[in-house]
Amino acid sequence: MTDAAISVRGLRKRYRGSRRPAVDGVDLDVARGEVVALLGPNGAGKTTTVEILEGHRDRDDGEVAVLGTDPADGGRTWRARIGVVTQSATDLLELTPAEAVRHFARYYPDPRDPDEVLELVGLADAPRAVVKLSGGQRRRLDVALGIVGRPELLFLDEPTTGFDPQARRDFWRLVRALAAEGTTILLTTHYLEEAEVLADRLTVITDGVVVAEGSPATLAGRQSRPALVGWLEDGRPRTEATATPSALVAALGQHFGGEVPGLSVRRPSLEDVYLELLSAAAPEPALATAGGAR
């Protein structure tokens, strides 16, 4: 029990006035020191799950232990051991990042040095009021406030939404530094590249149910999927999935008598696997008939 940061069995939650449960029997395990990403489309139940784990929401059913404590009974001592970065806060506008971080450090029994935290998130040189920060700086402040208490477990809910590519890469470096220090991280994201870079393990949720779990390299048998060979024939792109790409390329070489126009060979990306999982797990009624052959 003590080496599990998060242990969830049969988690269920239905919102009032909603016919479908938002979370419908989710099991989830996160070991200490692990970085786990929760993936899934909007409305899949990711944020609901995370908010229940953070103690922000009640659940209808299921067993939940976060750092060995049921979040529904989590007191101050428990909250001091977790860090929470939620979506879209617009508070603290009149303060500077340094003032905000110093203030939040006071809430914790053993906080990090606020100046070090500001340095770590790259806001040491941002003396301006929070209202003037860019979206990326604002999000890094959210992370600063989430980690200033030296959490054993950090929740990051869609932390890089709206980032430009450079800001996203800086942010990934920050998350990896935290993970390297031993912080357990549960991350939700829409960006598969982000999940692939950061997470040790992925859990895909759709319609409140876990549909797949695994490492980024092996999710849903990704490593043993057929390769996709693409080329141009009569000026039109062709693609073929094959377990023996070398043989196919050799055959194509003979067919074209030399160079194959527009040749590409690739393994299915995480995104390919993910989108396949979603369409298999929850076919839209209209698409179910059209794509029934698959």
Partner: peptide
Amino acid sequence: GDRDDGTLKRLRGTPMP
């Protein structure tokens, strides 16, 4: 305003009583 802009939610995630 505190409820709307995320102040209360953020505080709820900290050990602030």
